[in-house]
Nucleic acid binder design. Structure first.
Length: 357
DNA sequence: AACGAGGCCAACCGCCAGGGC
DNA sequence: TGCCCTGGCGGTTGGCCTCGT
């Protein structure tokens, strides 16, 4: 009884499509429409599974498919939407005419994800990675402590210099970390390099007044140069990622936050204002087929008082997706890296500059 | 020139939600 | 109400290509 499931039959062809098959499928759909995908292969004279036909049509044969590399605007849109929606490729694809979810997914996995990782951002959460600072710091401390273990052994001059540098670095970092420790009311999750860097950026740009920093000329100078290097690191990202217009346009953030420098990437800003993303994600999820409405709405009332919502919101969509996302452990693994093996250029910039002091 | 490593991407796999019966 | 089918989605794979040695 009933219909047989798709792809049940053996002997159906798999693998790459030939131009002849493409033509058959294209001709059939242009003449009759696809109708039922399950019955299409037989009607079109194809020895293929219906799913395979559907995929081929959607990802390759559809006339409105846009070919070629992604534009900077498309790239920015993907980053933006991914920060809100997570791995909802089909939803993201609806915002990129002519692009398929498969194409976007591939582009993300092969380009954008790696870019974010290189920048020191977690591609899943779009937040600054917590492992960069802590692991590097712990490694430096371990290196510095090494001297205690080998005190009794004779060391040549360069080794001694190395130890001395490592110790000095570790002390400097600890001092810096202590100074930048957020007030007691702040969340514990701020205890990482990039959250601190956001403090650095803000502190050096007058967004926050933190007297111990301002009153210490040396530290202030260090922070300034660090913030500058951070900005340069961000600027090395192929395109400006921040969408100030979008955010300001939708009244998502207070004005002073939209005045952040243009170098700051969208993902960086969202981590400064994570509650905004969470609000957006919640709104988006709450609307069936409402992504366009959500993302295009100019009705500020829609968003309400996000500052209050922040306390009520469940974990962000991206945080939730982090639980189920196994992408980092996937085939692209070489770029993911273990927390202790980060080689982010940003960490190089940061520690390089620090060493210069 | 040969080989291996890594990147890229089309296609497959497996799961799930929705709808029909 | 529950089963089954279908379409759709995200994750993963495998083969081809490029690049470095």
């Amino acid at each position: 009884m009933g219909r047989s499931p798709c792809c049940e039959g053996n002997g159906l062809k798999k693998g790459p499509w030939s131009s002849e098959e493409d033509k058959k499928l294209l001709d059939f759909i242009q003449q009759h429409g696809h109708g039922s995908w399950i019955s299409l292969p037989k009607r079109a004279g194809l020895n293929r599974c219906g799913k395979s036909c559907r995929l081929r049509w959607i990802n390759y044969l559809r006339p409105d498919i846009k070919r070629g590399s992604f534009s900077p605007e498309e790239e920015q849109t993907i980053l933006h939407l991914h920060s809100v929606l997570g791995n909802k490729w089909s939803a993201i694809a609806t915002r990129l005419p002519g692009r398929t979810d498969n194409e976007i997914k591939n582009y993300w996995n092969t380009h954008l994800k790696k870019k974010l990782i290189r920048m020191g951002f977690d591609p899943v959460t779009h937040r600054r990675r917590t492992d960069v600072f802590s692991s590097s710091l712990s490694q430096l401390i371990a290196l510095a402590n090494l001297s205690k273990l080998i005190d009794s052994r004779p060391l040549d001059e360069s080794a001694l210099t190395l130890q001395s540098d490592a110790l000095q670095l570790a002390n400097s970092l600890q001092y810096l970390q202590g100074l930048l420790q957020p007030p007691a009311s702040a969340t514990a999750s701020n205890n990482n390099l990039f959250s601190q860097t956001s403090c650095i950026t803000e502190a050096t740009q007058g967004y926050t007044a933190y007297d111990p920093i301002k009153e210490d000329p040396d530290l202030n100078s260090l922070l300034s140069s660090t913030a500058r290097l951070f900005s340069e690191g961000i600027a090395s990202f192929s395109q400006p990622l921040q969408d100030n217009n979008f955010i300001a346009h939708h009244h998502l953030v207070p004005n002073y936050l939209t005045n952040t420098p243009p170098q700051v990437p969208f993902s960086f800003q969202t981590s400064l204002n994570n509650h905004v993303d969470r609000t957006a994600a919640t709104q988006c999820l709450s609307m069936v087929n409402g992504i366009d409405h959500c993302l295009d709405s100019t009705d500020s009332a829609l968003w309400g008082d996000y500052d209050d919502l922040d306390l009520l919101l469940p974990p962000s969509l991206t945080e939730a997706s982090a639980v189920t996302d196994h992408g980092d452990a996937g085939t692209g693994g070489s770029s993911g890296g273990s927390p202790s093996s980060s080689t982010s250029p940003w960490s190089n910039i940061f520690f390089g500059d620090l060493a210069g002091h």
